[in-house]
Design a protein around this nucleic acid. Structure first.
Lengths: 173, 173
DNA sequence: GAAGTCATGTAAACGGTTACATGATTTT
DNA sequence: AAAATCATGTAACCGTTTACATGACTTC
């Protein structure tokens, strides 16, 4: 039973507490988003598939509030999750258009500093955003650890851009 | 005339010197690969499209060596490249299964250290590989700058993993 | 009553990887 | 003669994003 990459995010989230697809999307958006995104177009179909496979179980909640389907992890789902956690991570993908432009900047050197500045601004904004999440959520345990990774690595990248932009400015001065 | 993301890599490479699709793939594989990959399945069709659009020009070389098609950047191609370099970079994508497993590790805490160790090993191997490329290619100008970014960021990530793994080991000791 | 947000889903398109297919040339 | 590498390409598949569609409930 091969699980898709995003299936594991869902299983992992449901291990914390039962959630609807909408909930999962919201949690993803202010937590794993910066290193593992997921859209509705994936979450909802994936939830159905996981339910068919017996790894999660959906329960319609129409009582008082809006009608929504809350999913719970089954025993088999928990087993699949812990099994996956025990396997060495392999996918590491990284696409950075800023680095690409910088790499090719010799074709238009006057653009290099602006590219560095834009990349720095991006990482600074990301760090700020993650710091806000940290402050709002107390950020404990493994989730907090990963959040700090996001903050610190963003700051490192922003610093790198600052240093290199300065170096370029000095060189051309 | 909307260019696909990878089209720019091709234009950028051809700005250095005329190359065949095979050449481009080889150059990508030991340069942009760590932040912008490209496969044959993209490069060859993209070259045809760029040739149709008049941004590159292919010339069959069957003289002495193997028959191959060498592409050159046209004036329009160079214009498209510099124009693109002047636009702020926007795509920044990052998928890190190691971080994801760490983030969800509370469901199986005994796996956390192994995940950190695996992620560290990955970044160390990447740093080593990039350092070899640096040594082999003298790494000048913007390409060298980006290469050093790869080395230094990989080392930062490896260090982070080392620190956190140690912290976890101490905590459980 | 309007705006916002909760909530679920689908269809089309996109970008990309993998595997396959082929064959010539060069090196061992 | 075999193995490696040069060289080009296509087809199938995969995961994902975006846009669209719908509607109910809640807050202002």
């Amino acid at each position: 039973m091969e699980l898709s990459p995003t299936a594991h995010v869902i299983l992992g989230m449901l291990a914390w507490r039962p959630m609807s697809g909408y909930d999962i999307k919201a949690v993803v958006d202010h937590s794993t988003r910066f290193f593992w995104a997921a859209s509705y177009g994936q979450i909802y179909p994936e939830l159905s598939r996981l339910a068919d496979a017996g790894l999660v179980k959906g329960k319609a909640e129409s009582a008082s509030a809006r009608k929504r389907t809350v999913y719970t992890l089954t025993a088999a789902g928990r087993r699949a999750l812990t099994e996956w956690l025990g396997v060495e991570p392999r996918t590491f993908e990284y696409r950075d258009e800023g680095l690409l432009k910088l790499f090719l900047a010799s074709a238009a050197p006057e653009t290099a500093v602006a590219t560095l500045d834009a990349k720095r601004a991006f990482h600074e904004a990301k760090a700020k955003q993650l710091r806000e999440i940290e402050a709002a959520s107390k950020a404990e345990g493994y989730a907090g650890m990963v959040l700090r990774y996001g903050i610190e690595s963003s700051e490192w990248m922003a610093d790198w851009c600052r240093r290199e932009a300065e170096r370029l400015r000095e060189e051309t001065a």
